[in-house]
Design a protein around this nucleic acid. Structure first.
Lengths: 236, 236
DNA sequence: CCAAAAGTGTTAGGCTTACACCCATGA
DNA sequence: TCATGGGTGTAAGCCTAACACTTTTGG
């Protein structure tokens, strides 16, 4: 590679690109797929909403950068994180060449305390379907990550990351409907989910609801791993 | 973002990462899925085979970098190119922090002239299944791209990019078997392919074969686009 | 007793899979 | 005439999709 042919040339010519990460942090509440946005307090894009992002430090593992953002904004670590795509248009950032690696995270939004951070003037959970404009090319990044989430959620049991430990089948269906932006048939959805044998009946029921209380389930990680070893796939 | 908070800090601290691309160039010949490798002539990894790669120039569109590699090695432009994943481990490159964006390309290897280039001491088409070791983390990158290709080829009609303009159904089946590393049933494969209505019978037959000559088809791009608009999916 | 959501089965049709023999050609 | 791969149809069963009413609870 050119690197080794012209070592004196390298730093001057090539080491002038900045690398950042943007993290699309998805949540779910009241039937809405949410994304965690920050409000910018400076130019460019002053007062615009944006995805939380950060520069990658020279000695920082790439994957640690989105985790750092997450930790700072929500206090959480150990969450589902997936690399999505790298966006590198020359003019995507008005102040220079900044290539950004987009990640998305899935967290249970309900009990997350948003902490003040160096990233943002303010932060908010916003329904994905209500977002019309964002700073930079962040709308494009969000849409790409949402599509990527749709694929993931159909092929791997990752949707559970957005729900509390225990949940009802209706919760799960509403989640899938919000992510996939389709209506699903209740009976068929339940049949399929239960037939995959990855839900554990925790012998509890909803309380405080003005209707027949639903059974609570949790995702059986262990069972899923066993099935995966046997080559049994998860699919919606 | 921090960028605008501490502008004097930026260049010193963050603009010290190099960005490269590596291009997994797939080809297909004699029933083998091939990848175009270059042989390194310098340390580190002297005499190792590696994926062709290059640094991204400061004013170069990210997607243009793998196209530049392709052009230089094969003379081709306008080929199928897909971004796969970004690899950014701190220690992945022995000479500093180099984050690399992996792409893969699909080309018809048969009639490509490999041209001498600044990238390589020598170049070769190597069957993917025979590759045991590569420079840097290129084996991991190759495997990731191969998996990504498997997904793509099952959901979009991109396999055709690896074949000549016209091909037989057996060519197509052998291609799918090589990529997916499975045996497929001849009758079922043909039924499915023909039923998708994206193959155009070009009214030719093979010649010079010591058996009943096969019909030649070509991929009907226009028909596929029409079907896609109607929401009809391609799937293997 | 009313409102609200939970929970439940069946059927038709489409798709997938498994499977074996004759055909056309060049040598 | 032989070797080689091309080309073809059917049946079983599995999966999907469509569809409506009863149950249980809180208010």
């Amino acid at each position: 590679m050119e690197l080794y042919r012209q070592p004196q040339f390298q730093n001057e010519k090539f080491f002038t690109i900045a690398l950042s990460v943007d993290n699309v942090i998805f949540g779910f509440e009241n039937g809405n797929l949410l994304v965690l946005l920050i409000k910018r307090g400076e130019e460019p894009f002053n007062n615009y909403w944006a995805l939380p992002g950060a520069k990658v430090k020279p000695d920082e593992e790439l994957v640690d950068a989105p985790m750092r953002i997450l930790k700072e904004l929500t206090g959480l670590s150990n969450v589902y994180l997936e690399q999505c795509k790298t966006f590198g248009k020359v003019d995507r950032h008005p102040e220079g060449r900044v290539v950004t690696v987009a990640y998305f995270s899935l967290i249970n939004a309900k009990h997350v305390k948003l902490t003040p951070s160096s990233f943002a003037v303010s932060t908010a959970w916003v329904p994905v379907k209500d977002i019309v404009d964002l700073a930079f090319d962040h709308k494009e990044i969000l849409e790409y990550c949402h599509n990527s989430l749709k694929e993931s959620v159909k092929q791997r049991p990752v949707g559970f990351e957005l729900l509390p430990q225990t949940f009802t089948l209706s919760d799960l269906q509403t989640l899938y409907e919000a992510i996939l932006e389709v209506k699903l048939d209740k009976r068929n959805f339940r049949k399929k989910m239960l037939s995959m044998d990855i839900l554990l009946d925790v012998n509890q029921r909803q309380s405080g609801v003005a209707h027949r209380p639903a059974k609570m389930y949790k995702f059986d990680e262990y069972k899923y791993e066993q099935l995966k070893k046997k080559g049994v796939a998860f699919a919606i």
